[in-house]
Design a protein around this nucleic acid. Structure first.
Length: 890
RNA sequence: GGGCGCGUAGCUCAGCUGGUUAGAGCGCCACGUUGACAUCGUGGAGGUCGUUGGUUCGAGUCCAAUCGCGCCCACCA
C-alpha cells in the first residue's frame, strides 16, 4: 500500500500560524480530547489547577499547562484512557474587585448602590462576557483538555458539593462559628485566612512613649511600632517576675490623648528582655494583646472602622482619620506633650493583604472556621507513606511543617461573590440552622450574609468536577486522579487542602503524584509582574515564534525545581528546532517517493540495513527508552534534551547526511526511504507531546497518516526489544564501530579546518585504524567515508607508514592522516602535536600512578581497574602514534 | 528565630544513587551560498565545579564549617 503526497509544496520555513488553529479545531471536532470511562483501557487523569475566571494567560500558566499537556498526550499515546479536566475558579475577592472597578468606570455604579442581588447578576454577566478569555488562551498553546467537561466553581454541581461539604463538616462539629481575631483587609473589607497574608519586611520606627501613672509617681515607658493603636489601649503589661515593675502592678495609668485610665497588669506576654519590658495592650488590634485581654478580661476597644479609618471610640479629634494619618497625629501630639523618649529605626515584618496590597488590620469579629487538626492527620500520613508523592520530594518538608502546625481555617468572607454560607439565624430566637436548603419557614430566618473562601470550593475540585457527591461513572473511573501539576506557591492554599478533602469526603487520595513547577522570572531574576512591565504576553510570543516553539523552549530551559529565567529570545531555540524538523520533513518530501505503509516496527524487517541505519535505529531505541523514563520520573527537561540532541545531532547531522547518498542511488533509494520513514515517524511521535502542532502537520504532509487519522492517537514509541534489535543486526559493537567512524570523520574535518583548506576542496586521506576489526569495518565503509571527508582518495591501512608532510589526528579508534605535498605550517602542526603529547603524558602518568597504588587495585571494583588498564593501553598507543607523527614532521 | 534552595564556560543552566579527559543552549572566533534548513553546516576558543577542611583507592557529586544570593514559614510589642 502506498500513498502519494509529494505534490504538496512545503515552504522553506515552518509557519506555525498556518497549522496551529487548523489542527486544534480539527482535534476538537473529532473528539480526540475526550476521555470516557472505558473497560478496555486504564484510566489516566489530571485536573487542571483552575485559573481565575478573570485571569489572562501568563508564562506561569504556559509552563504549568504545557507540562500537563505533555503528560496527558504522552499517556494517551501510550494507550491510556486519558482525560484532562479543565475549568475555572470564581476567585471571589479578585473577581468582585475586578467587576466593582469595571462598574465604577463604565456605569459609575458601586456594589452598595446596586445591592446584593443586582450586583451578583452583574458579575455573572461580566463572567459570561470576559470569563472565557483564559480558556481560549489555553487552547492556543494546544492544551488537550476534554473541553466538554469544562467546569466552573460556581456551577450548580460544584456549588452543591460545597454545600454538602459545609453541612457535613458542620454536623461533624468541624465547622464552627466564633468571635475571634482575624486578618482583616481594609481594602476588600473582608476577613482573610492566614495564608492570604503575606509578610513583608518594612522599614518603620520604634516609638518609645511615656505613659504617666495616675498617682503621679512617674511614668512607664512603652515601645510600639503602631502608635495609633494606643487609642485602643486598655492596659499596660509587665512580666510577673520582673522585679523592676513589681510595685507598679495594680496601679493605673492615665492614658495620654484619651482621658482614660488603664490598669498595669502582670502577664507573661511581656518580655523583660525586650524594649523596656513594659508593653501596651490593645486587645482589639493585636493578636497577642487579644489573648492577654481574654486572660485579664480587659475591654476590647475597637478604635477603627472596617476601612481602617478611626472611629468614634478613638476620640473626637481622630475620627475619620486613616490609620496612618492617625499615626502621624498621635506622634505629633505625644511629642507636643513631651511624652516621647525616643524614636528608633526599626525593620520588622508586616502582614499585607495579598489582594489589597495594604497592611492587614487584625480585627475581632464573628467568623466561620474549619477545625483542621483531625482532617490533617490522614493527609499527613498519605504523604509520609508515599501513597502521594511529591516531585521534587523536598516539598514534603514544607507540607509536613505546615500540616503539623495547622491552624483553624477562617472560611467566611464579607463579600458577595461566592458560595453563600448555608446558615440561617432565627429572627426571634437567634437559633442557628445549617442545611443545604433554607428552613421551611424561611420568613422567620435570616441567612448569613457571608460567602465562603474561594478555596473552600477549590479544595473539592478533583471530585466535585466529576459529579460528587453523586457516584458517577466518571468519578468511579477517573478518580483518584494520577498526577497534579501546580506551583509550590499554592501548596497550602490548594494542594494540602485537596488531600485533606479528598480523604475526608471520598475516602481516597485525590492524586498520586504532585509535580511542583518552577517559578518563572525574567532574565534578571525578577518576578514577573504587571507593574514591572516584565511580564511577556504568551500570545505575542506564540504569534512571533509559534506555540510549539514556546512549549519546547520553556520545557527545555526549565530547571528541575528551580526558578526559570525567561526571556523571549529563548524561544528561538524552540523555533529553530521546529524549523529543523520541518526541514527534515521537507527534505523527505523532496524525494518524491511514496511512503510505504504501515510504517511500523516490522516494516524494516525485510530491509537490508546499512551500518548507519543500524546505528540510527539503535540510537532511536535508546532515546525512546530514555524519553519514556524521563517522563515517568517527571524529568521533562531531561526528555526534551535527549530528544533535541538526538534529532539534531544523530538524526540530522549524521543520519540524513548519510542517507543522501542512498537516495541518490536508484537501487538503494527505496529501502533507504523506508528506513528514513520508520525513524522519522518515530521521532515525530516522540516529539508530539512536546510539539503537538508541527508533528501533526508533518505526519500528514508526508503521508505517514491518512487524513482521518491523528498523531494524537498514534502509539508512543518505546525501546525496541533486545531480541528484535539483535535480529536486525543492531548490536552494541556495531553502534560502537559506527561511532568510531564518525569520530574519525570529525578528526579528518578538523585537519582540514586546521590547515584552512576549504570544505569544497578534494583531499587525499589515509586512515590507520587502531586494530584489525576497525580496519575491516572502515573498509566496508570506505564509500561513506570518502563522501563525508570529501576525499579524492582514501587509503585504509593497518600498517600505514605516513609520508613526510602528513598532518594527522589520533583518535581512540585510529589515526587519520592528511598527506599534503603543498606548503604546510610545520610549526603549527608541531605545536598541536606537542600539546596533545603533553596531555597524553599527563593522563598516562595519572593512570599509572593509580594502578601502582595498591589501595586502588585492591579496593576499587575489578571492573573499574580493568577500565583504567584498558584506558592506559589505549593512551599509550595513542602517545606512540603522536610521537611518531612528530618525528615524521622533522 | 526556624526551614528550604542555589552558587559549574562571558550569560542561562544540565550533570540521577561518587568511577573514563565535566556537558548543552545562547554569545564569541574561523571557514562555508555542497539542491532540507543561514531559524543552517563544519571546526574552534573558553571552566583550579564559591571558599576551607574531612570521608574515600577515587568527590562537581558525600560530610562539616564558612562566605554570597534567593525563597518559605514564624505573634516578640
Amino acid at each position: 500500500m502506498s500513498e502519494k503526497i509529494n505534490n504538496i509544496e512545503m515552504p522553506k520555513a515552518y509557519e506555525p500560524s498556518k497549522t496551529e488553529e487548523k489542527y486544534f479545531l480539527l482535534w476538537e471536532r473529532k473528539g480526540l480530547f475526550k476521555g470516557s470511562p472505558s473497560e478496555k483501557r486504564k484510566p489516566y487523569s489530571i485536573v487542571i489547577p483552575p485559573p481565575n475566571v478573570t485571569g489572562i494567560l501568563t508564562m506561569g500558566h504556559v509552563l504549568n499547562n504545557t507540562l500537563q499537556d505533555i503528560l496527558i498526550r504522552w499517556r494517551r499515546m501510550r494507550g491510556f484512557e486519558a482525560c484532562w479536566f479543565p475549568g475555572t475558579d470564581h476567585a471571589g475577592i479578585a473577581t468582585e474587585a475586578r467587576v466593582e472597578r469595571h462598574l465604577r468606570e463604565t456605569e459609575n455604579l458601586t456594589r452598595e448602590t446596586l445591592g446584593r442581588g443586582e450586583f451578583i447578576k452583574k458579575v455573572w454577566t461580566w463572567k459570561e462576557l470576559y470569563g472565557g478569555t483564559i480558556i481560549k488562551q489555553l487552547k492556543k498553546i494546544g492544551a488537550s483538555c476534554d473541553w466538554e467537561k469544562e467546569r466552573f466553581t460556581m456551577d450548580e454541581g460544584l456549588s452543591n458539593a460545597v454545600l454538602e461539604v459545609f453541612v457535613r463538616l458542620y454536623e461533624k462539629g468541624y465547622i464552627y462559628r466564633g468571635r475571634r481575631m482575624i486578618n482583616w483587609c481594609p481594602v476588600s473589607k473582608t476577613a482573610l485566612s492566614d495564608e492570604e497574608v503575606i509578610h513583608k519586611e518594612v522599614h518603620g520606627y520604634f516609638y518609645h512613649f511615656k505613659y504617666p501613672l495616675s498617682d503621679g509617681s512617674g511614668y512607664l515607658e512603652i515601645a510600639t511600632t503602631r502608635p495609633e493603636t494606643m487609642l485602643g489601649d486598655t492596659a499596660v503589661a509587665v512580666h510577673p517576675n520582673d522585679e523592676r515593675y513589681k510595685n507598679f502592678v495594680g496601679k493605673t495609668i492615665d492614658l495620654p490623648l484619651t482621658g482614660r485610665k488603664i490598669p498595669v497588669i502582670a502577664d507573661e506576654h511581656a518580655n523583660p528582655e525586650f524594649g523596656t519590658g513594659c508593653v501596651k495592650i490593645t486587645p482589639a488590634h493585636d493578636p497577642n494583646d487579644f489573648e492577654v485581654g481574654m486572660r485579664h478580661k480587659l475591654e476590647i476597644l475597637n478604635v477603627m472602622n472596617p476601612n481602617a479609618a478611626m472611629n468614634e471610640a478613638a476620640g473626637e479629634e481622630f475620627v475619620g482619620l486613616d490609620r496612618f494619618e492617625c499615626r502621624e497625629k498621635v506622634v505629633r501630639l505625644m511629642g507636643d506633650a513631651k511624652l516621647i523618649s525616643k524614636i528608633e529605626d526599626h525593620v520588622h515584618s508586616v502582614g499585607y493583604s495579598e489582594r489589597g496590597d495594604v497592611p492587614i488590620e487584625p480585627r475581632v469579629s464573628e467568623q466561620w472556621f474549619v477545625s483542621m487538626k483531625e482532617l490533617a492527620k490522614p493527609a499527613i500520613e498519605a504523604v509520609r507513606s508515599g501513597e502521594i508523592k511529591f516531585h521534587p520530594e523536598r516539598w514534603t518538608k514544607t507540607y509536613f511543617h505546615w500540616m503539623e502546625n495547622i491552624k483553624d481555617w477562617c472560611i467566611s468572607r464579607q463579600i458577595w461573590w461566592g458560595h453563600r454560607i448555608p446558615a440561617w439565624y432565627h429572627k426571634k430566637t437567634g437559633e442557628i440552622y445549617v442545611g443545604k436548603k433554607p428552613p421551611s419557614d424561611a420568613e422567620n430566618w435570616k441567612q448569613d450574609d457571608d460567602v465562603l473562601d474561594t478555596w473552600f470550593s477549590s479544595w473539592l475540585w478533583p471530585f466535585s468536577i466529576m459529579g460528587w457527591p453523586e457516584k458517577t461513572k466518571t468519578l468511579s473511573f477517573f478518580y483518584p486522579t494520577n498526577d497534579l501539576v501546580t506551583g509550590p506557591d499554592i501548596i497550602f492554599f490548594w494542594v494540602a487542602r485537596m488531600i485533606m478533602a479528598g480523604i475526608e469526603f471520598t475516602g481516597e487520595i485525590p492524586f498520586r503524584n504532585v509535580y511542583f513547577t518552577s517559578i518563572i522570572r525574567d532574565d534578571k531574576g525578577r518576578k514577573l509582574s504587571k507593574s514591572l512591565g516584565n511580564s511577556p504576553d504568551p500570545l505575542d510570543v506564540i504569534a512571533k515564534y509559534g506555540a510549539d516553539a514556546l512549549r519546547f523552549s520553556i520545557i527545555y530551559i526549565a530547571p528541575v525545581g528551580m526558578d526559570i529565567r525567561y526571556s523571549d529570545e529563548k524561544c528561538e531555540l524552540g523555533r529553530n528546532f521546529a524549523n529543523k524538523i520541518w526541514n527534515s520533513a521537507r527534505f523527505r518530501s523532496m524525494q518524491n517517493s511514496p511512503v510505504f505503509k504501515p510504517i511500523s516496527n516490522s516494516s524494516i524487517d525485510a530491509v537490508p540495513l546499512s551500518n548507519d541505519e543500524k546505528w540510527i535505529i539503535g540510537r532511536l531505541s535508546a532515546v525512546a527508552e530514555a524519553a519514556n523514563g524521563s517522563m515517568e520520573g517527571f524529568r521533562f527537561h531531561e526528555a526534551a534534551h535527549s530528544l533535541y540532541e538526538f534529532v539534531r545531532g544523530d538524526f540530522c547531522d549524521w543520519f540524513i547526511e548519510s542517507q543522501k547518498r542512498l537516495f541518490a542511488n536508484p537501487e538503494k533509494k527505496e529501502n533507504a526511504l523506508k528506513v528514513f520513514d520508520f525513524v522519522f515517524y518515530e521521532i515525530i511521535r516522540l516529539l508530539h507531546p512536546f510539539m503537538p502542532f508541527v508533528t501533526e502537520e508533518i505526519a500528514h504532509q508526508l503521508g505517514y497518516l491518512s487524513e482521518d487519522e491523528s498523531i494524537m492517537r498514534a502509539e508512543y514509541p518505546q525501546a525496541i526489544a533486545p531480541d528484535k534489535l539483535a535480529g536486525l543486526g543492531i548490536t552494541e559493537e556495531k553502534i560502537r564501530l559506527v561511532s568510531a567512524k564518525f569520530a574519525i570523520i570529525s578528526a579528518g574535518r578538523k585537519l582540514r579546518s586546521d590547515y584552512n583548506l576549504p570544505p569544497g576542496k578534494s583531499l587525499a586521506y589515509c586512515i590507520k585504524p587502531a586494530n584489525k576489526e576497525i580496519a575491516d569495518f572502515m573498509r566496508t565503509e570506505s564509500e561513506m567515508l570518502t563522501t563525508f571527508l570529501r576525499a579524492s582518495d582514501l587509503v585504509i591501512e593497518l600498517s600505514f607508514e605516513p609520508p613526510d608532510a602528513s598532518p594527522s589526528s589520533v583518535t581512540d579508534f585510529g589515526t587519520i592522516y592528511m598527506p599534503l605535498k603543498g606548503i604546510i605550517d610545520f610549526d603549527g602542526e608541531k605545536t598541536k602535536l606537542s600539546k596533545q603529547k603533553q596531555e597524553l603524558e599527563g593522563w598516562i602518568k595519572g593512570a599509572r600512578a593509580k594502578l601502582a597504588n595498591d589501595r586502588f587495585t585492591s579496593k576499587a571494583p575489578p571492573q573499574v581497574v580493568d577500565e583504567v588498564k584498558a584506558q592506559l593501553a589505549s593512551m599509550e598507543e595513542k602517545l606512540k602514534t603522536v610521537e611518531e607523527n612528530i618525528c615524521n614532521l622533522i
